[in-house]
């Protein structure tokens, strides 16, 4: 890349989520970056691996721990044109989970008559490595 690169060309941003949702603040503050970042019209993807897959578990209830349940925000990401949520298959399997345990997260495809499509894309660890290698900016939380 040159010093005078064209700022108008969208960069590929990948937000890597590796931690469970409530034990630390990383997941919540990662989501805050994603929401702010959406206004910059870059090519945004999210990756969920290791304990990060727990962020997408369906039916989260947090009243017992006195913390805000922010999981509904993931379902709203489509409205921010954040439509690529890559979930690592091996991370699910290592935790006894399947994609059926995850929230139903969809977006409306403007290129396909606003048809609802799933945002979650199950990928292998090898495919995840390729996705990461393809990015311009990787933010890991």
């Amino acid at each position: 890349m040159s010093e005078d690169m064209d700022d108008d060309v969208a960069k590929k941003f990948l937000y890597v989520n590796r931690k469970a949702p409530y034990g630390t603040i990383y997941a919540l503050e990662s989501l805050e970056v994603v929401l702010i970042g959406a206004a910059f019209e870059q090519d945004v993807s999210l990756a969920f691996l290791d304990d990060g897959v727990y962020q997408l578990i369906d039916g989260q209830k947090t009243t017992g721990i006195g913390m805000k349940n922010f999981s509904p925000t993931y379902k709203a990401l489509g409205d921010y044109e954040v439509t690529k949520l890559y979930v690592e298959k091996e991370s699910l399997e290592e935790r006894g989970l399947t994609v059926d345990d995850l929230m139903d997260i969809v977006y409306e495809d403007e290129d396909d008559d606003w048809e609802e499509k799933p945002s979650i894309r199950l990928v292998s660890r090898a495919e995840m490595a390729e996705i990461m290698a393809d990015q311009d900016v990787v933010l890991s939380f």
Binding site: M1, M5, D7, K11, F13, Y26, E32, V33, I36, G37, A39, F40, Q42, D136, V137, V138, L139, S140
Partner: peptide, 21 residues
Amino acid sequence: SGLGQLIEAGIKSERLVTFGD
């Protein structure tokens, strides 16, 4: 300042280097 400053740094820089866990 706001989080937009982080996104802008990612856009305007050739490399964004992260330090943390």
